[in-house]
Design a protein around this nucleic acid. Structure first.
Lengths: 145, 145, 145, 145
DNA sequence: GTGGTCTAGACCACA
DNA sequence: GTGGTCTAGACCACT
């Protein structure tokens, strides 16, 4: 859960930011099938948001099948691995679609898109060196609780 | 303005969808510096939206410098080419940033991102033929967020 | 919306009672595809519940596809008639299933079930005379009939 | 007690599921007046639930008069046959009430209700053969821990 | 301590 | 005026 950061000024609602954070934590393997996620109250405290907001995020994710709640015991990552993998796939596909659609709408050709991405990844190579943590991604995490 | 499609169920506000559509039309060269854009009333009619909504879109774009209003004569794309190019650049950069950030959050490496994009562009090569390349909206699904 | 009554003492959450009431109003044809449903605030006032509670009911029904919201204009019954009919069918099927399962668990045979239902319908024939339309509740709570 | 199945994901509290299961076992004659029921510990083990949960179920049933505890000897089904029969009757009546109310809310007429039930019983005739008739819960869902 | 429901009231964005 | 989000805090039920 280390990677979840809330941007209170973002256009995206907080509860969706929480969902995104959790989805990605699972996609990255930081949270594994069957793992317990923080209690609504705990997560609310650490993120400094209202418990209701966390609850909404959890509820929506339960609807998607990502989470399962056990009355009085807590909330858990589903053990349905195919579903988890499907979510990861879907998120990646959506990212590609958004990228390609947007750039095509701007009139870029295939080669330009590839080049744009390549140069970005290249230029970031140097930058992302010391900042591992400012972004919160890509670092292997220790076991929780 | 052919490429502007309004999705009334999308999460994104309609006035922003209009702004996006216009920005992209300019970026693509479909609308050129100094061109007259449709009157607010006309655009509202063709898009079947509330005139207030078009007005808001135009107002915001005027604030950005993209549009200029000549009282009594209509509204025009600015002739400030650097500004137009800047907008295009900004949109493209934002798209790359969103793409890279999202995929990194999912744990993908540089090579995987490149590969993902390449395969998508490859697979689309045959498919996209009839639909003019003027799609421009991320998710064709209704209602969700 | 006439049939929606809230039982604040029922075990079933209020927002679900609202959902039930609306579903049934649609099933009965009282609300038709494309109809506008009361605004969250209005319904909250008439039912004397908190607007948030109505909102939750609406949100869940939107998720089910029964409702559609148009930004700033209101909330509407979906025009997807097959879906509506499907909901009606599902509700009826679930009722039958619950009935049969429960009575079978009590050891009743087919004929007994039929007889039980017949006698109930028979005995109600006289009672239900004046109160038609003022029903819409399912709770087997005290003080009825 | 063979018929008691716990659905940990169901909306209904586990202790009530236990109560339901026991009530029905008695109603079906599987458990007879004066019979000893499993100790709280044993039942908790076989159902894989928390002993507290079984305790609560037993406590509530004792309150209803269905169970009687003989200190040091165990817990027994009451010998009060009228009370047992009353419970059975009550459960059956409640089932009928729920059924009729729900279908009426959907706008069905008496004849349609009868027909709906008849067709269901008919169609099940062939299917139910192997599974002992001891199902008793509405929605069969997976999910365990 | 866990999640679930509900209220009251605030603020925002959209049409 | 419409729905959407969020907070604060209360109370409940289950384990």
């Amino acid at each position: 859960m280390r990677g979840v950061r809330i941007d209170f000024d973002a256009a995206k609602p907080i509860y969706q930011q929480i969902m995104d954070g959790l989805c990605r934590a699972v996609a990255r393997g930081e949270l594994r099938p069957g793992d317990k996620v923080p209690s609504q109250r705990d997560l609310a405290l650490t993120l400094k948001v209202n418990p209701n907001t966390v609850q909404r995020a959890y509820r929506e994710m339960e609807r998607e099948g990502l989470l399962e709640t056990a009355r009085g015991r807590g909330t858990f990552i589903t053990r349905d691995r195919p579903l988890l993998e499907g979510i990861r796939r879907r998120l990646a596909e959506e990212a590609v679609t958004a990228f390609v659609d947007e750039l095509r709408a701007l009139g870029l050709e295939r080669e330009e898109m590839m080049e744009l991405l390549r140069s970005r990844l290249e230029s970031e190579r140097g930058i992302r060196r010391d900042d591992d943590g400012a972004d919160g991604e890509e670092t292997p995490r220790p076991g929780r609780d």
